[in-house]
Amino acid sequence: MARWAVALIFVVGFAAIGIFTPTAVLGQATTSKPYTPPRTPDGHPDLQGVWQVLNTAAWDLEDHNARLGVPAGRGVVEGGVIPYQPAALAKKRENFDKRATLDPESKCYLPGIPRITYMPYPFQIVQQADKVSILYEYLHTIRYIYMNGNPHPKGPIEWWMGDSRGRWEGNTLVVDVIHFNDLTWFDRAGNFHSSALHVIERYTPTGPDHMLYEATIEDPSVFTRPWKISMPLYRRQERDAELLEYQCHAYLLEQEWNNPSSTLFEQP
């Protein structure tokens, strides 16, 4: 083989390393090429499957240390801190102190949006032309995200899970959620909202088995400005991944019903 040909191979080889290696490394960290997800028969990005988070947001949306039964974790709030108004911050701290009894999760109520997304249970997305349904293992909860052109129904309405209306922005499913009650929390650390809560969720596929989940939280009676959480969603990889059952209130009633000193049935 001619010596120039060998040299050329080396040059091309080094050039390839020079060009591609840093890009690939950078790409993983910051500016990967946008992923093009498969499409449903309707032509929309196909987000269907069984998904779950892998983080500690269920315990606390902000950075937190470990406690008994609680793993330490990094926060999922952009900027690190939830921008409470002063009075609301005091209430959050009180919620935290009394979380064992005040947390609505301890009563097995529907946990609201976005909390149900990052509880440690899988959920399944099912798409149809007129709606995207999210089936949560927690409490067998079904959530309909209507894509049928109907705006939010006129209020006042106070629902545990709010009213969800969706639209596609490129490959992103954008869901606008309003009509909440003021009885749910964001996590087990007492982070809370009022019935004026407005959540804008964004589900963006970033690979065949990953989505970026973002939720912008607006509630002018509790926070000084809108704030945002974001986290990856992971497709469950087990071949036969499926939703099972967490019938929270059934287990609670079974435990408390025949207990004469139970406080569960006392009215506030």
Binding site: L110, I142, N150, W160, M161
Partner: peptide, 8 residues
């Protein structure tokens, strides 16, 4: 238009 929707 909401007749076909399922509400909480």
């Amino acid at each position: 238009p909401y007749a076909i929707e399922l509400w909480e």
